[in-house]
Amino acid sequence: MATLNLLEPAAAYAVDDKEVLSLIEAVRQGVKFNAFFNFASKGPFSINEWSTFLHLSERTMQRYKREKKTFDPLQSEKILEIALLYKKGTDVFGNGEKFNNWLTTDNVALGNVKPKDLFDSSFGINLLKDELGRIEYGVLA
């Protein structure tokens, strides 16, 4: 119910972190693989990269796809965190293409790490949110 709406292509960018209760419910219900795949296919990351972000093997991801499984709450939460981050990034950069370029380029402020390499950890995602906030307000030091 709430999960599918959060990850639909048009709605993926409308996810608002002020709707915490609906996010919690979506995590508890789990993200269906089809909704995830619909969202993920619009971005710059391969299934192999997503399997790294979600700490699942690529083979497990293929099984989820084949069996139309629902992700566990831990993976569902990570998917939604990345969706929220993606929304913020596209807002800050003005479009998805510029944000995708930022995600895949070594970043001096992050210790010469590609921002996408931090997606496998909630701490990394929070660091990226903070960095996007600094960019948004022109604090680039």
Rank of each mutant, 00 (worst) to 15 (best):
V31W: 00
N34H: 07
K32D: 08
M61S: 02
K32S: 09
Y13G: 13
R28K: 15
S41P: 03
F39C: 02
T60K: 13
F36V: 01
L56Q: 14
G30N: 06
S22C: 05
T60R: 03
L54Y: 10
P44H: 03
N34V: 13
W50F: 13
W50S: 08
G43I: 06
S41V: 07
T52K: 12
A14G: 03
T60S: 05
S57Q: 06
V15S: 01
P44D: 04
A40G: 03
L23H: 05
A26G: 02
D16R: 13
A35N: 00
I47A: 08
R59N: 04
A26Y: 06
F45K: 05
L23V: 11
V27F: 09
F45E: 00
E19R: 14
I47M: 12
S22Q: 05
E19F: 07
S46F: 11
S51Q: 03
N48T: 15
T60G: 05
L21A: 09
S41C: 09
A40D: 01
H55L: 10
G43N: 14
Q29K: 11
D17K: 14
S51R: 09
Q29F: 02
V31D: 00
E49F: 00
E58D: 10
A40N: 02
S51A: 15
I47F: 06
N34F: 05
I47G: 04
D17N: 10
T60V: 15
P44N: 05
E58R: 09
F39Q: 03
E49D: 14
R59G: 10
E58K: 08
S46P: 08
N38L: 09
F53G: 11
A35G: 02
A26V: 01
V20C: 15
I24H: 03
K32N: 13
S51F: 01
N38R: 12
W50I: 04
L21Q: 12
P44L: 09
E25R: 14
E49T: 03
K32F: 05
S57R: 12
V31K: 07
S51H: 09
A26F: 10
S41E: 11
A14H: 05
Y13Q: 08
S46K: 06
R28E: 11
S57N: 08
G43A: 00
Y13V: 13
